[in-house]
Design a protein around this nucleic acid. Structure first.
Length: 362
RNA sequence: GCAGGGAUGCCGGAGUGGACAAUCGGAGCAGUCUGUAAAACUGCCGCUCGAAAGGGCUACGAAGGUUCGAAUCCUUCUCCCUGCA
């Protein structure tokens, strides 16, 4: 079994408030940068000239470049009228660039290659759970078509930087098993180095779509890496690892850190790998948890005035920079003053929580 | 001492006769966050009864007064600030 890995999202070529040394210390194995966002900033050529994203960032860990499929979906989904998705690629008005963009699979590959990543993602037509079955069907057809174009462009450019990057394709199909199957088969036939579960991984109620996740994982032969894109909460990751997924990325640990929600392993249930895999899976509710509830393995620590006189570390079992050096009271103090250091320490802590989670379940 | 200005809820600060339990910030509280339009956003935020609609009580430095009605007008007092002595 592959060791599961979690890659935080470094959309713009950075984890907000951190530098790459912070990532190393938190034992972060890799990051996901977004080719579309960097393209919007006009940084593709610059980064290429710098020698690629690793050299530019001075980051030796893994780098995945995401295509921008999700962003385009999100933009168009939330702003009907912003654009449309044609069989050749999305055409849409980008509010930041203030111009109309025609984004093709070939363009996506070209942009990603400028960044010289380790893993690239084919442009896909990403959907949300609430779109019609017709749209899901269209999404699958276009995702397969675009993936073929991506593969072709990739081979044409035949990148060696320094090693050939891996090219992953994304399986769409929403909640339809039939469509997921169709998509997986189509993509497998074209041939890729790894496969991702795409789309919105939670339903309208915010619940993980476990059934379709499991079904889709089983569609991918075990010799390929299975990447659950955009997942997720700690309990969601554990569930997905059980299904066979070994790669993850999500904004949750970093965003929630900035929003003052810190993750703490529950002292009573500081679980081993097997225990974690066996039966964790319930979301924590509040900071205080019922004792002896073995099903809860971590808790949320909210940065609020309850911490004002709390001089213990965020998580006494944690070895991160924040926990090794500062108290909850001090972190609260920094948050209250809106100091960027608060966000840095919180983010470091949450990322280390995630890397510890991956250690526990690998 | 004389002349001006001011005192508003935890804090800052609007309001200058009825629509004021009182705009708006901050703090506080409760939530949300899943291939980052996010150091963001939403709700609550005098006490109290009610599931809610709504009701009762107490409040705009203090005490009186005018008025159907006052945070808002008048009188006195207390404290703070600014000029002149």
């Amino acid at each position: 079994m592959r060791t599961p890995v979690f890659f935080p999202d470094a959309t713009f070529g950075l984890i907000k408030h951190l530098d790459q040394k912070d990532l190393e210390h938190a034992k972060v194995p890799g990051i996901v940068v977004n080719a579309y966002h960097l393209f919007k900033l006009g940084k593709g050529k610059l980064i290429e000239k710098a020698g690629g994203i690793h050299a530019f960032m001075n980051w030796n860990g893994t780098v995945i470049t995401d295509s921008g499929g999700w962003q385009i979906m999100s933009l168009i989904h939330d702003n009907p009228g912003a654009g449309k998705i044609t069989d050749d690629g999305p055409i849409f008005f980008d509010p930041d660039l203030k111009q109309k963009i025609f984004f093709t699979p070939e363009k996506s590959i070209e942009l990603q290659l400028q960044l010289k990543p380790d893993i690239m993602i084919c442009l896909d037509n990403c959907t949300r759970h609430d779109v019609s079955i017709q749209n899901q069907k269209k999404s699958v057809e276009q995702t397969i078509k675009w993936a073929a174009q991506c593969k072709k462009e990739f081979e044409k450019l035949n990148p060696i930087i320094p090693a050939r990057p891996l090219l992953f394709a994304v399986i769409q199909g929403g909640n339809s098993k039939k469509l997921r199957k169709k998509c997986a088969e189509g993509l497998l036939k074209i041939g890729f180095d790894g496969f991702s579960f795409g789309g919105h991984p939670v339903d309208a109620k915010g619940k993980l779509v476990t059934e379709i996740l499991k079904y889709t994982a089983d569609l991918i032969p075990d010799k390929f890496p299975k990447y659950a894109m955009g997942i997720g909460k700690p309990e969601d990751i554990v569930k997905c690892v059980k299904m066979g997924y070994t790669m993850f990325d999500c904004v949750i640990p970093t965003r929630e850190a900035r929003h003052g929600r810190l993750y703490v392993y529950h002292p009573e249930t500081n679980l081993s790998a097997e225990e974690s895999l066996r039966g964790i899976l319930r979301s924590p509710r509040k900071t205080r948890l019922p004792q002896n509830n073995k099903k809860i393995f971590y808790e949320h620590l909210f940065v609020n005035s309850k911490l004002e006189y709390d001089f213990q570390p965020i998580d006494p079992t944690c070895d991160c920079l924040a926990c090794q050096n500062y108290s909850r009271a001090y972190i609260y103090h920094l948050f209250r003053l809106r100091e960027p250091a608060a966000l840095r320490l919180a983010t470091i802590h949450n990322l280390r929580f995630y890397t510890r989670l991956m250690e526990k379940i690998s």
